[in-house]
Amino acid sequence: MNPIVTIAGREIRAGLRNRWVVAATGLLAVLALVLGFLGSAPAGEVDAGALTVSVVSLSSLSIYLLPLLALLLTYDALVGELEDGTLMLLLAYPVSRWQLITGKFIGHAAILAFATIVGFGLAGVAIAATGSVGDQGVRAFAALLISSVALGWVFIGVGYLISVLVRERSTAAGLAVVVWLLLVVLYDMALLATLTATGGENIIGQAVPALLLLNPADAYRLFNLSGLAEVASFSGLGAAGGDIALGWALVSLLGWLVVPLGLTWLIFRRREL
């Protein structure tokens, strides 16, 4: 059998065994349900369907949570095995390094996709069963699922890059927290500050929408909140994202998926054990 499949299976089995899959799926489902049923209460009776409201609140949640989960899953993917000594044995087998990374990615990607789709999906089904659902709502929710999976995958790649850059597991953990803060929290704050300071007037102010796209978390937000007319009007983000093509958000996410993984491979390929 292909070594990629074997390595992927190894990661999936590890995720099942240490209850990671169950815990992540449960966490996402519970949070999605809570947001779906309680989160819409303050909004009162609104024009938008229940699912549409969920998309807005869920995407606001997963923009923080999914990167964190993905980084937790993968920050030590390589450095941890290096430290344990399992990497040396694995690479003494007829497995090339790109096969190892690809196999690990497929395994981790499957785990995270499962947790996201099942966790959010269960909540979505429950919400849809109890509230009004429009065609738009279903489409927006499907888009949310897909883009949430993509966001998770992006941060799997970022986690790998972290785990190939450092020499110790603890350093990787610290770096993962820093990267998460930078990409998910501080970047937005900096942009907001810029926008406030410039009033969106001069060159810097006008560059904000483009700068939003350079960050995977913001690309994800734009994709979900401005992608569909109904969501956009409800989220109030239509103005910021209006003139940005939905496609560019996807391009950004794709870029953020490919570049960290590519860098990981380039570094790992030359790494001496």
Binding site: R10, R13, A14, R17, N18, D84, G85, T86, M88, L89, A92, Y93, P94, V95, S96
Partner: peptide, 21 residues
């Protein structure tokens, strides 16, 4: 050399295996 390693058996010092399996 990937194929070459199919013909090599290696036992590292202080061999470690993923704990849960």
């Amino acid at each position: 050399a990937v194929a070459l390693r199919a013909h090599i058996g290696f036992l590292p010092e202080n061999v470690v295996f993923a704990g849960g399996m």
